[in-house]
Design a protein around this nucleic acid. Structure first.
Length: 882
RNA sequence: GGGCGGGUAGCUCAGUUGGUUAGAGCGCAUGCUUUACACGCAUGAUGUCACAGGUUCGAAUCCUGUUCCGCCCACCA
């Protein structure tokens, strides 16, 4: 039951009970419904590594806006919630916690470790769910999913086996990115490159016969222990004599060949490259071309192997670097050291510098999948908003590398492959095998690895709808309508969903990808926990309310640009909510005679004006939402509700509401109710809580606002004529207010105004505007006069279309008092009023201060001598008229 | 090395296909306890539209170059 409205909007009380009401009414629930068009969004599942941050708040706000809008537009709108197990990230969080107890995951064992992660998941999941509810997310909670739950695991299994059977998933030993700390392979995307200033070491590799040999330049001297060749550019005159010969690898005292390879850039360094096929991707390729052996000198833990030599075995790779450099220097083989900037790859999750090394892993062959993904965007089946992201997407897919999907972790989907130790068979099936199909051996061993977390995320749109089952939901809601996410996961997630959806379900996963920017702090830095600049959205909701947070974020959205969070915006949005609350309060306080169904009586200028402006606002909002210009839609509503409905129409409505004319009063009440209802509905997808709360008070019998139909434009109510007339009245009112303000009049002071029409047409217009001007500009008496009535034609100058205003204060007694005040004030503001620097005296002021001229859209206080004379004449003329 | 985005008021940003005097919010100044709202009302001040050329009757907007900032991609040791 709605309570009476407080003077200030208090979101705290209202939001919780409103969300409970929605849940109780089941307004977010969507069903397969052939009578309606489906509209579906799958949430980008938040990681269970932690709680939601401002980026999520933005992402959820956009999705909720779209979902609520479409729901009100009559679509069967389904928003599927869920969370992501976030493999490596979550495992790292758990490992950090264990480290605080001085434990590693190996102390617990796989089973106990994953049991603990599940508990961690439960904690975070509960928190995330609560946060989503506090954001007002209108998700269908009955359909919530988690990437590791049973159904989704079945989807992962089906996808893996299918791709395996099609030869698109394979196992092989290849150069991959290895994180020595996480102890797992990584995909290329999980390696973050950072430019660092390191060194370029110049090392001499002498000839075996004691000749000078050559000098190589390297950024990683420790890898020289695993060198198996030196490469030079073909036809490099400096080295032609050495190609085919050998040089002596220092420290290891091993002879290695000098080979010629196209890859070598003769201009870089010395033009001679040491080749370490086991520890550098380029070297691996050179090694392959020249059939060079690959010596593994760095082990998976980042320490040197026995192969590196007894002196280095077991040493950390960076320790070994220092030792190698020292040993070379001692032997006089270190020619020079130069500072050198180069990109260093580090683990996305723990920032450890990754080690490229050869390892046996599972891969997805991407080229065929990428081809499908490229076609879908090229032919418009999928559209990116803003479209420039399509190029980014395309560039990546066109140069795509195979995807390493196996991870040496414990938290994730286990790879559905078994090995038979008896015959070496590799078994990948939909059902867990018990015996080897080839040799019937029963000692099968499951692959210990799990899948890259993005493998399951890539299936999200199909798996949440029930795939691989061909469920009614999948048939009805797939392809989903819009995917909303930040540009930072276009490669990781968006591209992979597109490829997986196309390949496995033979249809795009969504038709539109709405890409938004990242939330940055006031100084422009990315918000992150580690930088300590992250703002907890829940705290903001506590302080300002969820609607204010949502509205502020929507206003901040720019077209795919990052957005800067500033508390100012939030205050503004909070104030806007309060404004809406109070305007609604006012309307409801004055509705006693309103007949909701009664057709309006005769409409006056202001009525026709606000109806017209109302339609314009609806038009803008509907159009801008359709173009995903969410900030423009929000701004249009802000401007209309505050700047037009509240500032003008509500003020004008008071004339009728406090007046004697009952019919007029009813008309205005009815209009106010209608307009407010539609304002609430229009605003609802942006600020759902406050609009629902007011709606329940305004129309308690009408059910949830979330299920009302979205206001559409009625073009018949648009009146350019009313808009023009009103705009003109607003100019007059503004001019009179400006004068009053410049003259320091108190609001109580009523002024006498004569509006001099320059033409008969103008006179008629002024008559239509008269009531409004009097009421809103504090005018006691407004005389609408013909030019000829005050002065002979010509005296006032050539007043074509515009009206001229003479403004003077109250009656005679008041004038004296007022003038004394005004003079004092004018002296304070000396020179400020009209730009005149001349000190004003009494006489001057009386004659000039209360007079002004409106010309077109400008008002000026008259100060030219000639004008003064004319005005004095006019004032006299007017006074004689009174 | 390649690509993308941006530089507009003190701050955060709008500015659609070129078009009179470049806008908003916040902040600032002044005045208001006006019976919805001080989370309010009214009024006001503030710009070398990064820089330099060019196209045009007319450029914040289109073209060229320069510069600064941010981001993405990339195996030059």
């Amino acid at each position: 039951m709605p309570e009476p409205m407080d003077k200030a909007y208090d979101p705290q009380q209202i939001e919780k009970q409103t969300y409970d009401y929605w849940m109780a009414q089941g307004v977010f629930e969507a069903e397969v419904n052939p009578a309606k068009a489906p509209y579906c969004i799958v949430i980008p599942p938040p990681n269970v590594t932690g709680v939601l941050h401002m980026g999520h708040a933005l992402d959820e706000t956009i999705q909720d806006l779209l979902i609520r809008w479409h729901r009100m537009c009559g679509d069967e709108a389904l928003w599927i919630p869920g969370t992501d197990h976030a493999g490596i990230a979550t495992q790292n969080v758990m490992e950090k916690r264990l480290a605080e107890e001085d434990l590693t995951r190996h102390d617990l064992g796989r089973e106990e470790f994953t049991a603990r992660v599940w508990k961690l998941k439960d904690e975070h999941h509960a928190r995330i769910k609560e946060q989503l509810q506090r954001f007002g997310a209108s998700v269908d909670w009955r359909r919530e999913r988690f990437t590791l739950d049973e159904g989704l695991s079945r989807a992962v299994r089906e996808a893996f086996v299918t791709l395996y059977e099609q030869g698109l998933i394979y196992r092989g030993a290849r150069m991959i990115n290895w994180c020595p700390r996480c102890q797992t392979g990584l995909s290329d995307l999980e390696v973050e490159h950072e430019n660092r200033t390191g060194h370029l070491w110049y090392i001499r590799y002498p000839s075996p016969d004691g000749g000078p040999g050559l000098v190589v330049a390297t950024t990683r001297p420790e890898t020289m222990l695993g060198d198996t060749a030196v490469a030079v550019a073909p036809n490099d005159p400096r080295y032609a004599h050495l190609v085919g010969k050998t040089v002596l690898l220092p420290l290891q005292e091993r002879e290695i060949p000098v080979v010629a390879d196209e890859w070598v850039d003769p201009a870089f360094g010395t033009g001679a490259v040491k080749v370490t096929p086991a520890h550098d991707p380029n070297d691996a390729e050179i090694g392959e071309r020249h059939h060079l052996p690959a010596l593994v000198v760095i082990a998976l833990d980042g320490r040197m192997t026995a192969e590196a030599g007894a002196a280095y075995e077991g040493m950390d790779r960076y320790e070994a670097r220092a030792e190698v450099v020292a040993a070379l220097e001692e032997r006089g083989l270190l020619e020079k050291i130069e500072p050198h900037e180069h990109a260093v790859g580090q683990c996305q999750r723990c920032s450890t510098i990754v080690e490229p090394l050869v390892s046996t892993q599972w891969f997805v062959k991407m080229a065929p999948l990428a081809e499908e993904g490229l076609a879908a965007v090229a032919d418009g089946r999928i559209k990116f908003v803003p479209s420039r992201w399509e190029k980014i997407y395309r560039d990546w897919l066109e140069n795509i590398q195979d995807w390493c999907i196996s991870r040496q972790l414990w938290w994730g989907h286990e790879i559905p492959v078994w090995y038979c130790p008896d015959c070496g068979e590799q078994i990948c099936t939909r059902e867990d095998p018990t015996v080897c199909p080839k040799c019937a051996g029963s000692r099968l061993e499951r692959d210990p690895d799990v899948l890259d977390t993005w493998f399951s995320s890539g299936l999200w749109p199909i798996s949440t709808l029930g795939w691989p089952e061909e469920t009614p939901e999948l048939q009805y809601f797939y392809p989903t309508s819009c995917l909303v996410t930040g540009y930072d996961i276009i490669y990781f997630w968006v591209a992979r969903m597109i490829m997986m959806g196309l390949h496995l379900r033979h249809e795009v996963p969504f038709r539109t990808v709405f890409i938004h920017g990242l939330v940055r702090d006031e100084t422009g830095r990315k918000m992150s926990k580690s930088l300590g600049n992250a703002v907890d959205p829940l705290l903001l909701i506590d302080e300002y309310g969820a609607d204010a947070l949502r509205f502020a974020l929507l206003q901040l959205i720019t077209h795919g640009q990052d957005l800067t969070y500033t508390p100012d915006r939030l205050v503004g949005a909070r104030n806007f909510c309060n404004k809406l609350w109070n305007a609604s309060r006012f309307v409801m306080m004055n509705l006693e005679d309103a007949a909701p169904d009664c057709p309006c009586g005769e409409l006056d200028l202001a009525d026709r004006w606000i109806l017209s402006r109302h339609q314009r606002a609806l038009q803008t909002v509907n159009e801008e939402l359709g173009r995903y210009n969410l900030a423009q839609a929000a701004d249009a509503l802000y401007e209309y509700v505050w700047g037009e409905f509240c500032d003008w129409y509500v003020e004008i409505a008071k004339i009728a509401l406090y007046g004697e004319d009952v019919a007029r009063k009813q008309t205005v009440q009815t209009l106010l109710r209608q307009l407010l209802s539609e304002i609430l509905a229009t605003l609802h997808p942006l600020t759902p809580f406050i609009t629902e709360a007011i709606w329940q008070r305004l129309a308690p019998e009408g059910g949830s606002l979330a299920r009302q139909s979205y206001p559409q434009v009625d073009p018949t109510q648009i009146s350019t004529e009313a808009e023009d007339l009103m705009a003109e009245a607003q100019v007059f009112i503004g001019a009179i207010r400006t004068l009053r303000s410049d003259l320091g009049m108190s609001p109580q002071t009523r002024v006498e105004v004569s509006l001099l029409a320059g033409s008969e047409e103008q006179r008629l217009r002024l008559l239509a505007q008269e009531t409004i001007i009097r009421s809103l500009a504090g005018v006691a008496n407004l005389h609408v006069l013909d030019l000829d009535e005050v002065a002979p034609p010509g005296t006032l100058g050539r007043v074509a279309a515009g009206a001229r205003v003479l403004l003077h204060v109250g009656d005679a007694v008041d004038i004296e008092k007022e003038v004394a005040r005004l003079v004092k004030r004018a002296q304070e503001l000396e020179g400020k009023i009209s730009g005149s620097r001349r000190k004003l005296d009494n006489a001057d002021f009386v004659s000039r201060a209360p007079a002004a001229v409106i010309e077109g859209e400008r008002v000026r206080l008259v100060d030219a001598e000639a004008d003064l004379v004319r005005l004095q004449e006019q004032i006299q003329a007017m006074e004689s008229l009174r």
